[in-house]
């Protein structure tokens, strides 16, 4: 199969070494390979946005139907990736290189427009967002944060299941607003890994919070080092708290690395961009996974509110 894209960082590694990995998990539109450095390399089909440390093929093929199974050995070399004991080969020669880092070269939009777009984000979340993930918990922040009204209609309720974590969530958000790094690390450990999903809903939310921190710090001309420190505090005690796939997501997000849909959204949100493009990008993020897109977008919304409220 011809690959259309390869993450530049991964390609650079292939220029200096061949290596092997083991198939970790297989889904219809993607599969993950755990390499000898215990890092996940993701293979995506044409329907998925390019993501960090990934290889994307040009066809809309179901990886399940290809018969790829967990524990199969995968050989990586500069031009070909081969799945052992199968007839499956991925050709990298014609792949386009893809940069995983945050896109921080956009022309900044003015704050009035940013707030308008943020409000629009809230409206769309309220109208189209999936309510099965982190959404019900957001209501518990009403007294801690301004600008959340747009996310709810008048009679929203929270799930009883979330009761035990509600106070921990509020504490996390308070320490995030305070920017108290010690408390932040302690409080994030108490919420990481909560929720249904391969990337539990809370992790998607935290990913959104961290992405918004990187992009807004650039937008506001703040010290990027400080943004990275805050995010580092959030994931400080990450190990074994959540699934491996989610750990990778959180690590990438902490340095602003995200898939194409999220990167495009952030650029159209904070950069000069027609409202239609911004809304199209919102819709694309919302379409990720079952509740992942909504949960991540809620993180971006809350993260942006917190930072913009203080400037």
């Amino acid at each position: 199969m011809e690959c259309s894209h390869i993450c530049h960082g991964l390609y650079k590694r292939l220029l200096v070494e061949d290596f092997t990995g083991i198939v970790h998990s297989v889904f219809n539109s993607s599969f993950n390979v755990l390499d000898d450095n215990q890092q996940l390399i993701t293979f995506l089909n044409a329907k998925r946005p390019m993501s960090p440390n990934s290889i994307k093929i040009g066809e809309n093929v179901s990886y399940h139907s290809l018969g790829i199974k967990p524990k199969q050995t995968v050989y990586f070399s500069r031009e070909i990736v081969e799945v052992k004991d199968s007839n499956i080969k991925f050709f990298l020669k014609e792949s386009e290189l893809w940069e995983k880092g945050p896109n921080l070269s956009f022309r900044r939009d003015n704050k009035v427009n940013i707030l308008t777009k943020l409000n629009r984000m809230g409206e769309i979340l309220s109208k189209e967002g999936k309510k099965d993930g982190i959404y019900p918990l957001i209501g518990s922040l009403e007294n801690s944060l301004e600008g959340l009204e747009v996310l709810f209609d008048s009679n929203h309720t929270t799930s009883n299941r979330d009761d035990f974590i509600k106070q921990r969530f509020i504490k996390f958000i308070e320490s995030y607003i305070e920017e108290d790094l010690v408390k932040l690390s302690k409080n994030s450990v108490d919420i990481i890994g909560y929720g249904v999903g391969l990337t539990p809903s809370m992790d998607d939310f935290l990913s959104g919070i961290m992405i918004s921190r990187i992009y807004l710090s650039y937008y506001l001309g703040l010290k990027m080092v400080y943004a990275y420190k805050i995010n580092e505090a959030i994931i400080k005690e990450l190990n074994n708290k959540t699934t491996m796939v989610s750990q990778e997501l959180l690590r990438f997000s902490s340095v602003g690395e995200a898939n194409d849909y999220v990167k495009d959204l952030m650029v159209s949100f904070l950069g000069i961009s027609p409202m239609k493009v911004f809304i199209d990008n919102l819709e694309k993020v919302l379409s990720i996974g079952e509740t992942s897109g909504t949960d991540m977008l809620l993180g971006i919304y809350i993260g942006s509110r917190i930072i913009l409220n203080s400037f």
């Binding site: 219809n28 066809e59 179901s62 139907s65």
Partner: peptide
């Protein structure tokens, strides 16, 4: 799944 079904065997 809306992906193309391509059985390998």
């Amino acid at each position: 799944s809306d992906s193309d079904y391509m059985p390998p065997t």
